[in-house]
């Protein structure tokens, strides 16, 4: 085991897959000579050369579309989006083409492209640069969407994503690239579509994905001091969604709090909360609570931007509510 940062775990995955399969290449803004805006691709240009590590112009729609073309023509592109805010320009190619190629061609084509980069709020960046946009992507059949929050999951899921014959979008977090954790020396994969219980507990289930995982784990510690034993389910994959792991946990604890840093309407969080209400109705001892971002664009002011996002305090408050602790 090695204790490494998420950015290094991602780089290891890229390097291993590029060594394993020469159809794999990476492109994006600043991925080569600058070693990546967030240093995920550090050293890859030196190792693999400019034929496989390509710095693109600032043209998200164009180079993502190029990736789609390369994918249906037999390559395995990894497209780095500098952030998901800028990937909005590329969504036409992702939603109308990557996600639909197999279907429109009656199964003749596959589009094994991976699009990855940081998603979700960072700090002091205001409305255009601090958005959790996963709801837009998970909405789309034909796409797979993964959202790791530990180095182990990041590496294992990226390797699976590159090997997958479907288009996979991977949500990372600017604020989490430096988070460290254990990663095995030997090769491993994390399967797409499998949630992971990050903490076992019996009183309440916290369901979370991406960077708020840390908030959930911290809330669980605080709750333990209040004699509430929380289980933390990390979804890891948003599409396909591991419903069984969610239900198994909720059927054990009979209470659920869903945490999602996106806006509340038509989100992963609201969908999961509905699934639980629908499928675990008889086992629930309280209504399902959702802790999400306030339904407003992100303000620049730091106090305000923290106030609009999920927090440990908000999670604890929601748990007290479902546990009827006054």
């Amino acid at each position: 085991m090695a204790d490494i940062a998420i950015r290094d775990a991602l780089r290891q995955a890229l390097e291993e897959e590029m060594n394993r399969d020469e159809r794999v290449f990476i492109m994006g803004e600043e991925v080569g000579e600058y070693n990546g805006a967030y240093k995920v691709t550090r050293g890859l240009l030196d190792t693999f050369g400019p034929g496989r590590v390509l710095d693109t112009p600032i043209a998200e729609l164009g180079f993502t579309g190029l990736g789609v073309g390369a994918a249906i023509a037999g390559l395995r592109p990894v497209v780095e989006w500098m952030t998901f805010n800028f990937a909005l320009l590329a969504l036409d190619q992702v939603i109308n083409n990557a996600a639909k190629m197999r279907h429109m061609s009656g199964g003749q084509l596959s589009c094994p492209i991976v699009c990855r980069g940081p998603n979700g709020p960072a700090e002091y960046l205001s409305s255009q640069h601090s958005q959790a946009l996963q709801s837009l992507l998970v909405h789309v059949p034909g796409l797979k969407v993964v959202a790791p929050a530990t180095p182990y999951d990041a590496k294992g899921l990226l390797k699976s994503a590159i090997r997958d014959d479907n288009p996979v979008v991977m949500l990372e977090s600017e604020m989490a690239y430096a988070w460290t954790g254990d990663v095995p020396e030997e090769e491993y994969l994390v399967p797409i579509g499998k949630a992971d219980v990050k903490r076992e507990g019996k009183d309440v289930t916290l369901i979370v994905h991406s960077k708020p995982l840390r908030l959930a784990l911290e809330a669980a510690e605080q709750l333990a001091a209040m004699d509430v034993d929380a289980e933390v389910v990390d979804l890891r994959s948003l599409r396909p969604l591991d419903e069984e792991t969610i239900y198994r946990s909720v059927r054990k604890t009979n209470r659920a709090v869903v945490i999602d840093e996106a806006w509340p309407m038509a989100s992963v969080g609201s969908h999961v909360a509905w699934l639980i209400s629908h499928n675990c109705f008889d086992e629930l001892d309280a209504q399902v609570e959702l802790v999400c971002s306030e339904d407003v664009p992100m303000p620049y002011n730091h106090t305000l931007e923290l106030a609009v996002q999920p927090s440990v305090e908000k999670i604890v408050r929601a748990v007290r509510k479902v546990c009827y602790i006054t």
């Binding site: 600032i58 805010n85 800028f86 909005l88 320009l89 002091y124 960046l125 205001s126 409305s127 255009q128 640069h129 664009p297 303000p299 620049y300 002011n301 305000l304």
Partner: peptide, 26 residues
């Protein structure tokens, strides 16, 4: 000018016909 909502990248002054700093390239 933007009541602390916009920050460095989003300066606006409609009175001076200055329609802003945009954070998305292009």
């Amino acid at each position: 000018c933007s009541r602390g909502k916009g920050g460095s990248m989003h300066l606006f002054d409609v009175e001076r016909n200055f329609l802003g700093g945009n954070g998305i390239v292009g």
